[in-house]
Amino acid sequence: MSAINRQNTHIIPVDFQYHQPETVGEAVKLLEAHPDAKPIAGGTDLVPKMKQRLLEPGHLVNLKRIRELQGVEDRGGEVYIGAATKLRAVERSETVQRRLPLLYSCVRSIGSVQIRNMGTLGGNVCNASPAADGALGLVALDATVQVAGPGGTRTVKAGDFFAGPGKTVLGRGELVTGFTVPVPGPDVGTCFISVGRTALDISTISIAVALRMKGGAVQEARVALGSVAPTPLRLPEVENWLKGRELDEATVREAAGMVSGGIKPITDIRGTAEYRREAARGMAMEALTRAGGLEGRSQG
């Protein structure tokens, strides 16, 4: 609290020019032309940073008036979500609720209603916080990030999009236009769990699991954790180890041990590295149990 009170102000003590492009092309031109430009959508991360002078952009490029960046679209095998779609709109989308329950849970866990009415899925991802729950869901669902830039468009896997805390692979003039999320089949179980200090707090640690099952055996696994490394972290060693195995209590226990050993947590204001390793073990056990449909058996 004292840190906030020391640095925070009523105003944004930074002067900037404000641009409101209506197409992705115009936005890219503006971002390319002004190296000190920042894109802004919900502003829930950017405005507090500007209030504290952690960022002092000379230009802000508002992305919310660009129609092609808005909305959720069911495309059959995949769902497309525009980058400037508000988190609350993602959460309210029947398509997301029905076809991407994992992403729904992740988005619901972000901030408050007010924050989700302002913030966008693209903003949650592009701020590149290792604690971003929306980003974690996209990584666990193996989503593809759609990027537009001066050189045209390109795609990046969500798992390859992050370069470190606050850093992405976006180059100068590039912006994220949307996300293509493959819809898990009916044989896929998913689970998201996050632990925070209080209801509104950023996750101290979070986990998202997707398991494709056949009979009682794992066909394919995706295990991703937040706040345990510089970026949202997938654990391919654990995923490969699970593949083909019967999912029973012993398997879950051993996999959870691998999760605990495979993460790279640090000690920060939200928790210690030791705490995160222990929490990860318990959370992985619960998430694997629930995603694998073992709940009835393990509790019985």
Binding site: H10, Y18, G43, T44, V47, P48, Q114, N117
Partner: peptide, 16 residues
């Protein structure tokens, strides 16, 4: 309330 939805006025740009 902005267009009926609750938002934080302390982080909302007036120009927006």
């Amino acid at each position: 309330l902005l267009d009926g939805e609750p938002v934080m006025a302390c982080m909302t740009l007036a120009v927006d």
